[in-house]
Each structure stands twice: as structure tokens, then as C-alpha cells.
Design a protein around this nucleic acid. Sequence first.
DNA 1: TATTAGCACTTTCACTGGATGAGTGCTAAT
DNA 2: ATTAGCACTCATCCAGTGAAAGTGCTAATA
Lengths: 352, 352
Amino acid sequence: MSRRSLTQSPLGPTNERAQALLKTLIERYIRDGQPVGSRTLAKDSGMDLSPATVRNVLSDLEELGLIKAPHTSAGRVPTVRGYRMFVDSLLTVKPMRSAEVEKIKQELITDLSTDHLISTASAMLSNITGLAGIVTIPKRSILRLQHIEFLRLSENRILVILVVNGQEVQNRVINTERDFSQSELQQAANLLNAEFAGTDLTHIREHLFVSMQQARDAMHGIMHNVMSITDKVLAAQQRPDYVLVGQTNLMSYAEMSDMDKLRQIFDAFNQKRDILHILDQSIEAEGMQIFIGDESGYQVLDECSVVTAPYKVNDEVIGVLGVIGPTRMAYDRVIPIVDVTAKLLSAVLKPE
Amino acid sequence: MSRRSLTQSPLGPTNERAQALLKTLIERYIRDGQPVGSRTLAKDSGMDLSPATVRNVLSDLEELGLIKAPHTSAGRVPTVRGYRMFVDSLLTVKPMRSAEVEKIKQELITDLSTDHLISTASAMLSNITGLAGIVTIPKRSILRLQHIEFLRLSENRILVILVVNGQEVQNRVINTERDFSQSELQQAANLLNAEFAGTDLTHIREHLFVSMQQARDAMHGIMHNVMSITDKVLAAQQRPDYVLVGQTNLMSYAEMSDMDKLRQIFDAFNQKRDILHILDQSIEAEGMQIFIGDESGYQVLDECSVVTAPYKVNDEVIGVLGVIGPTRMAYDRVIPIVDVTAKLLSAVLKPE
DNA sequence: TATTAGCACTTTCACTGGATGAGTGCTAAT
DNA sequence: ATTAGCACTCATCCAGTGAAAGTGCTAATA
């Protein structure tokens, strides 16, 4: 009995047929969003089976929790578990058309600043997939100081300009208790540049106190305050963030027609907290991740899937990108797109 | 006959009653979004009139194009012209609660950077009105150079850091034909800082060529290239932009329940072009502006109103803020909120 | 023993035809 | 000038109906 064999060896050769049917069912459902019935599936499968036979198989699949029927006389629809099996073992990915790859490549290499690069990548993802594209701001754990500069804005505010990794500039305004003259600041900057140029920011912080001791003796304690300022600057780490493009694409899908639901999703995008948490998991996994429906652990996204891939510099993961769309997205197309885009972005970000 | 007198002197004392009824009708409609009928209006007006009388007046108002009936047996709904008359001459604004004013003030003064200030202002507008808040990035026409700095990133890329107006920092990466050494750049920066600190950027550009002539003679033409770089930098003006907060608020309104419409509006927000054009008009007008429905000239916004006010520094308009919401927004509450927020933001931005 | 034809059954969907209610415009009375 | 009265119009709700789609089960079949 097919029912028992499927349970016993869900991937075994005995059920090739059941799996093939599951596959075509999901492909069909992804294509046009309608529940798929036995008759349609029998035709679509190309397996010369009668609808009745298909029905038996569908019944088994339903019992396994891979598909379900919205109501008695509708066709079947994949469940989260169904999609999971689909992407894990049934999916045949469609490689990207080389024209598309080329397009992304072109767009990315003509870009200069990191910030703009991120936006472009997000836009590319969104455009090509027709879903929402998302790219996190890279968090460089190796922040090699190239140049630091202090600028006196007013009596108790100092602008700190940090150039790191030969690419990025960070501006931070900090408040101080006492007034520093521009020449004092200049001195401090010179010292720091001489001492720490090319060093990782975290290293600088560690060594700062040692240097501070020496400096105090040598320079009448003037540097003491400056150093503590520097420490302040280094402590203020940038909070994680992302660039999201094309959320309006989601509005085209029927499963998002519920305004309340949609609003909750958009609010989650603005909130950023939950979304970032999902993306974080992809950073940790260091590989592609696919969250289907409520697998993400967030109720709001229970009709959404998230496909992510980390991007790296020097073999270190510094960010994540991906797409967000309805659970019935075209995984076979989307997965390579996300994958390739991550690789391309990694390549472009590679320090020269 | 009331019909004729209304046409002849639309603001005359003869029609105080018609105007009062129009006012209460609109107020009522703004309150609960349902077409208002003669019976309800008769009660609401507090004027001791029979529904029949009210009907006659409504008939007149409809003929004047101030209200219209969605269908025969529905009540009346204000037209754009009706809203226009309402805000122009019938509206009694509700001053903000001082607690709210205080809240905005607190939020704004605890903020440091200009960028963050803009975001906060936008968020405040959105929160208090329950609509979408929008604030343009200030465009300072007086960009007084405080400090310029060149940094060699690679053989043909230079990072330019501009500090202007003692507040803002602008980073620009430019590509050059030939390689400049850091010391060359340092020289150039020193020269520029000595010569132009405190000067307006546009002035600098004008005088740059004169200085260039002199410099060429004096410095063997090394400066020539640097100067042209500087010119390049100054030419690249920042493109206008805005911060929009709370677009999801719009999804609560029944008139936005049409997904297509909503999507078009959101797309317009992302496009930015049309929205910026509307905001520009408020810059030029130098005062509060209210665009009701299609008055904005954009089809997508035909069920939206935009209330804007410019904000200034030193009596010069440098940006616009406002809210976007459905045409039936609570103008009496919204108008003072936008007005006050603009004034508060102006105050906070005042250079020290 | 696996497959299939046949059939009764269920449920959605689209449509229909009142019935209801809200609101209007007109007319005639005040 | 105002108002009561009334016929009329539309949207909305509801129940009912028939068609379409699809299922599960049973019995026949290869």
C-alpha cells in the first residue's frame, strides 16, 4: 500500500511517483496560485495516470501533511512542510540567464560608494525577481583605520571623521565636557594616525589605554581627554540596518490582498527588528537560507517566504541579502538569483 | 431664492446658513467617512431646521459643486471644491494641546545631527496626526565652507570631505585621471581652507578660476588639477530628497482599500519625483499650502490631501515638511500641527 | 494487486429576486 | 420661507438556486 511505504521511506524509490506528483502540483500552484485538482494534475504530470489514481496519491500526501485542501471541493495546496520537501529535495533550479547576470554585474561595478552599492543590489534583486529585495548594511568586523580627523564644531561638540578600509567614511558627532581647541584636536589626530593607521578599530580600542598612559606622561595629560573621546567614538558602533526595495511588489499577490495582513507586514519592515533577526540567522548559518511561511517564527510572515544568502569579504560574512515574497514564489528562479547576487556583491566589495 | 443669492455672493451674509450646513456636513463626513443625509445634518447643525429645508439647501450646494451624492439614495459627500471652501473660509482650527507641542519640542532638541532631526520631525508628524509624515532634506543655499579635506583612496579615487555650516558633513568620492599623492592633496586642502574657509560654496566656485590662474604661476601648475577636482566636487550638488514616515497609516482608511490605487500611491512615494514637485510648490510659496485631491495635479493623489509648511533658517526657506492623508483628514487638527512642527524645526535648526 | 470508472456528495461561486432601509425630490399645505 | 407627506431610487442584505469543480468511496478491471 503506497500509504505505508511513503511513511516508511519518504525519499525511497517506491514513491518516486508520489514525489513527482507533489513536485508538479507545487510547480503548478506556484504558477497560477489556484488549488490543483486531480484531473489537472493527472494531465500536467505527463505520467498517464487517471485522476482517480492521482486522488489516491494526493490522499496519501495529505495524510503526510505535505498538502492540504482549502475545502472539500477545492484542489490541493502545498503546506509549509510540502514546500520544505520541495525546496530540499525536489527542486531543479533554473540557472539565471547570462544576460541577467551581466546586467547585475554591470550595475554593480559602475557603482562607487558602498552605500549606493547596497541600494543597487537591493533594487536588482527586487527588479529581477518581482519581489521585495533586501540587503543589510555590511558590518565590517575588520575596520582598518585609514585616517581619523577631529573637527571642532562648537565649544562642546566635535565632529569625528573616520575613514576605514579605504572605502568607507563614517561621521560621528560627539559631545564633550570641556572645550578643545582645534590645535589640540589636530595634535590628537596626528598622534592617532601615526600610531594606528592600518590597524583594526577594535585593536585600537584595546591598545588605547596603554598608549594613554604613555601619552599622559609625555604630554601633560592633554591627550587624556582626547583619548577618552576616541574611545567614546569607537564604542559607538553602528546599529544594524538594511535597505529594502520593492515592497510594493508584494501588493500584486492575491494572498496579500488582506489589507490588515499587508499592513502588519509593512509595519514589520519599518520596525526592522524582527526582519533583522531573521536575516541574522543567515549570517550565522554562513550559507543560503530559506524560510518558508511560519518557519521564520514570526506570525506576520506566515504567508511569506524569505530567501537569503550571506555576502562576504575575505571569506568573512559581513552581511546578508535576499528577497521576501509570498510562499508560492518561484523558488527555482529566485534561489539562483539570490545566490548569484550575493556572490557578485561579494566580488565587488572585495578590497582592492 | 437661496439658489440665486448663493451664486451671486457665495460668501455673503445671506448664506450663512448654507455655509454653516456645509461646514457641519464636512465636519461630520470627516469624522466618520459616511455620506451625510438631510436628517442627520438637520440634527447635527443645531439649527432647528426640518430635514426638508436642509434638503433644499443641500440641493443648492450640490448645484454649486460643493457637495455631491455618490448615488440617489445616499447622503452627500464633499467635493474638492467643497473642501476648498471649507479650509479657506469655514475652518476653525483647533490649537494643539500644549502637551503635544512640548513632546515635539523635547524630541527635537534632544536630537543632534541634522539627518536624525529630519527623521524625528517626520516621525512626530506621522505619530500625532496618524497620517504619513514627510520632511524634505534641507537644501542650504548658503553652504559656508568650514573645512575641506582630501583623502587618497586609490590611484584614481579621491575622497573629499566637506564640512559646511558647522553642522553638516558631506562625503564625495571622485575619480581623477591621474594619481595625486597625499601630500599634494594636503597642500591643496591647506590652500583651500586658508583661502575659502567661511565662504559660501557657490562663491568659491566663482572665485576658483581666478585663484587657479595665480596658483598655476606660483606652483608649477600642480594645483591646476586639484582645482579642477574641487570644481568637480562643488558642481556635484546634492539631489533633493525627503524622509517619509508612516505610509502604512494610510492603509487604515477605507478610501484607500483599493489595492491598485494604494500601490500607485506607494510607488509614487518611492519614485519621489512627483511628490517632490508638489513639495517644491510649498517652498516657492513660502507659506502653508494645502493640496486637496487632484489639486496637486497628480491623478494618483486624487483621494489624498497634502498639507505642507516650509521651514527656514535665518528667514530663508530651506525645506518643507507636511503630511499626506486622505482628503477627509481632520484639517482643523492637522493644519496647526504641521504649522507648529515647521516652526519648531526651524527653531532647532537655527545655527548657533 | 494496482488501477480505474462511476457515482454520490460537498462546497464554492455567481446569480436571482425579494425585502429593507436610507435618503432624495417634488408637491401641496402652512 | 418652511415643512409635512409621499412616491421613487438605490445600495445592501438575505435566502435560494443551479452550475462547476473536486473529492472519497465502491466496485469493476487488467
